[in-house]
Simulated scan of single mutants.
Amino acid sequence: MRREPGLGRRPSRAELTAELHLTEEEVSEGQLAAPGYAARSLDIPAGADDAALGQDGAATGRASG
């Protein structure tokens, strides 16, 4: 969605529905599902947990456990 200059905030659900031509239910479902789509690097060792990862998802070199 385009962000209006100077909006300074996240768009409201009503603003999203108007801009994207979706129902409020569709926008709500999308907002609930969005956190499930966090990409991780393919370079992360198998089984690495969040404690062994930096904020960007990159391995920090610390052993997990």
Rank of each mutant, 00 (worst) to 15 (best):
G30L: 12
A18H: 01
L42F: 14
R9N: 12
P5N: 08
E29L: 14
E26I: 09
L53P: 13
R3Y: 04
E25R: 14
S41I: 07
A59F: 12
P11S: 00
G47V: 02
E26M: 10
R40Q: 08
A34M: 06
L42E: 15
E15H: 02
T17R: 00
L20R: 05
P35V: 05
L22D: 03
G65C: 02
A14P: 14
L7R: 13
P35N: 00
G57V: 03
A39D: 08
A34C: 03
L42I: 13
S64H: 10
E29R: 12
M1I: 09
G6M: 06
P45Q: 08
G47C: 06
S64A: 15
I44T: 14
G36P: 06
R2Q: 13
A38Y: 06
T60H: 03
G30C: 05
G57L: 05
G6S: 04
L22C: 10
A46Q: 15
S41G: 00
S12E: 11
T23E: 04
A63G: 12
E19Q: 07
L7C: 06
R10M: 13
E15K: 05
G30S: 05
E29A: 12
G57I: 02
R10W: 09
A58V: 09
D49S: 13
G6T: 06
L7V: 01
T17E: 15
R40P: 02
Q55K: 15
L32K: 12
D56T: 08
E4W: 03
G61D: 09
S28Y: 13
L32D: 10
R62G: 01
S64Y: 02
S28H: 14
T17Q: 10
R40H: 10
T23L: 01
T60A: 08
A63P: 12
E24R: 11
G30E: 00
L42W: 10
A46M: 14
A18D: 10
E4K: 12
S64G: 15
P45L: 05
E4R: 11
